[in-house]
């Protein structure tokens, strides 16, 4: 492709984006713009934490115990090197929060994708095949839905910890969390995809594909799935907020990410011990970070839901 047509292509896509309904409703909602900016800042800070963080909190050569418990800059005794103060080991809070957000967001995204893959596959299968397969999958979904997701995640986490030898817990903690949160969240995806699959499978293009002899799994993936993806993305965004909260909660309860590579939840747990001795910043700043992140993602999810499909409410 020569550069000129590439440029035309790009500008074409840009024009289509600029004139789209989604962009219009985005521009019209200041709250959504703020939420999007906050989310982008968080994701950016998390992804580029090793390069943009003012300190490297887990590099033992750069931290100094003498800096421990420095309050934030504006408080009495603050140090201009540490904007939000330091924790009990002299690590810069701002940097630990950036590295913590990295793990929180990483676990959040990974478990959303995991839940999405399980849920979408089972939903497609359930809706397309129907019959006994459908009723088994949906019965399991019903049962799982009658328990709160966090309880299911907690139980899976507990069971996996029981199966694995104790000294492996810390190493695999992140993967266990992704698995637990993912499995606890697949039902919503499966139900939605099953619904749209049942509608789509009776349409003419699917019948045409079937007549042409396309394999069932190929029909599901190539023909049905693209038409069922819209609501899945909305659920995914809202689920991301839930997944981040669940991760933080499990880590706070002490059955999540270990303190050696803390997520926001672990940071809050660790800082909680210093709350009573007056070092409030060690727990409050990660807490604010978590709250703002979750609120922003929630607002984005709400907006996306309304923008993509007003009927979905």
């Amino acid at each position: 492709m020569d550069p000129l047509s590439l440029r035309e292509n790009v500008s074409d896509t840009y024009v289509r984006f600029r004139d789209s309904d989604i962009y219009y409703s985005f521009r019209r909602s200041p709250l959504t713009i703020v939420a999007a900016v906050i989310t982008v800042v968080f994701v950016g800070a998390a992804v580029f934490a090793p390069w943009v963080a003012p300190h490297h909190p887990f590099d033992l050569t750069t931290i100094d115990l003498l800096d421990a418990f420095t309050p934030p800059v504006w408080a009495e005794g603050g140090d201009s090197r540490f904007l939000l103060g330091t924790d009990d080991q002299g690590r810069d809070m701002l940097s630990t929060i950036m590295f913590g957000a990295r793990i929180s967001l990483g676990v959040g995204f990974a478990s959303v994708i995991f839940a999405m893959v399980i849920g979408v596959s089972l939903g497609l299968l359930s809706g397309y095949v129907g019959g006994t397969t459908d009723s088994i999958i949906m019965r399991i979904a019903d049962i799982q839905l009658s328990f709160p997701a966090i309880l299911i995640a907690l139980l899976i986490d507990g069971v996996v910890r029981g199966i694995l030898p104790r000294d492996m817990h810390d190493e695999v903690a992140v993967y266990v969390l992704i698995f637990a949160i993912g499995v606890s969240g697949w039902v919503q995806y499966a139900r939605t995809v099953r619904g749209s699959t049942m509608v789509e499978k009776n349409k003419e293009y699917v019948q045409a594909a079937r007549v042409m002899g396309v394999m069932p799994w190929l029909i599901m993936l190539r023909h049905v799935l693209p038409n069922a993806m819209g609501p899945v993305l909305v659920i995914g965004t809202i689920h991301l907020a839930v997944a981040i909260i669940t991760e933080a909660t499990l880590s706070f309860l002490g059955v999540g990410v270990p303190p050696t590579s803390p997520s926001l939840g672990t940071l809050i747990r660790v800082g909680n011990d210093f709350l009573f001795s007056g070092e409030w910043w060690i727990t409050v700043f990660p807490g604010i970070g978590l709250a703002v992140l979750v609120l922003a993602v929630n607002l984005l999810g709400d907006w996306l839901r309304d923008a993509l499909n007003p009927k979905l409410r």
Binding site: A241, I245, A248, T249, F252, L253, I268, N272, L275, F276, G278, W280, T283, V284, G287, L290, A291, V294, L295, N298
Partner: peptide
């Protein structure tokens, strides 16, 4: 709805307890 339960608890402890 957005704030995790444990965070609300901690903030309450900070305000009314500490």
């Amino acid at each position: 709805v957005s704030l995790p339960t444990f965070l609300i608890g901690i903030l309450l402890i900070l305000l009314f307890g500490v």
